[in-house]
Amino acid sequence: MSISHPKRICQIIKLKPSAVEEYKGIHAAVWPGVLAALERAHIMDYSINYYPPFRLLIATMKYTGSNFEADMKAVSEDPETQKWWAITDGMQESFVEGAQGSGQDVPWWTEVEEVFRFEGKSQ
């Protein structure tokens, strides 16, 4: 897959009520190895927001590489990221039927369709 501009991605998942503070705490100090794996995979401008009424985590990011599938496979094979997911997946509830966790064949997070984008005028 070759892209000429960043691919923007939005994903959602539920946060377990008992895990809110722990999830926020671990994300206040994300492990350097996890961030390095994302950077190697051409992920940038990554953020996760939380909407408490629906216990909804909303992740947005930009992918700037040229082979998304291969880069995501590399992230899923990263040992530090696998350890991270072993902790964070237990705090989440997937919307995807049959999902067993991050980095598996069935997606853990649900990708959300973009229906509008405004980037403003270039100056």
Results as ranks from 00 to 15, higher is better:
K16Q: 10
A41H: 00
W31Q: 11
R117K: 11
G90Y: 12
P32Y: 02
G65C: 08
Q123D: 01
I87L: 15
A99T: 03
M1D: 14
Y50P: 00
E77N: 15
E69F: 09
A28F: 10
M72R: 10
L56E: 10
A28R: 12
D45E: 07
F54S: 07
G90R: 13
P53W: 06
G33T: 02
E21S: 11
S18A: 12
H27R: 11
D89K: 09
A86L: 15
E97F: 14
N49E: 06
E111A: 07
K73F: 09
T60E: 06
K14M: 11
D71E: 05
A86G: 15
N67P: 02
L56W: 08
Q100N: 05
I12V: 15
Y51K: 01
Q104V: 10
K14T: 12
G103L: 07
I9Y: 10
T81F: 12
E69G: 07
V75T: 06
S122I: 03
L15S: 09
K73H: 09
A86D: 15
M44D: 08
A70Y: 04
G65T: 04
R8C: 03
D78I: 09
D89R: 08
N67Y: 02
S66N: 05
A29G: 12
A59S: 11
D78T: 09
V20T: 11
I26N: 01
E111M: 10
K16C: 11
E119S: 07
I13E: 00
W85R: 09
P6Q: 08
S2M: 13
E69A: 15
E21G: 07
K24M: 09
L35P: 05
M61L: 09
G120D: 05
V20I: 15
G90Q: 13
S122P: 03
A99F: 05
E77A: 15
Q11D: 12
V34M: 01
W109N: 03
A19C: 12
R40H: 07
K73N: 05
K16H: 10
Q123S: 00
L15N: 04
M44V: 10
L35E: 07
P32I: 02
F118C: 04
K7Q: 10
E77R: 13
E119Q: 04
D78S: 02
S122C: 00
D89V: 09
I48D: 01
P52K: 00
T81N: 13
N67T: 04
S4R: 07
P79T: 03
I48A: 01
E111V: 08
I12M: 15
G103F: 01
A99S: 11
V96R: 07
M1Q: 13
D71A: 05
F95V: 08
Y63Q: 03
A28M: 12
M72N: 06
I58Y: 06
E111S: 08
V112I: 12
L57M: 04
V106S: 04
W84N: 05
I26K: 09
C10P: 00
Q123K: 01
A19Q: 10
H5F: 08
E80Y: 05
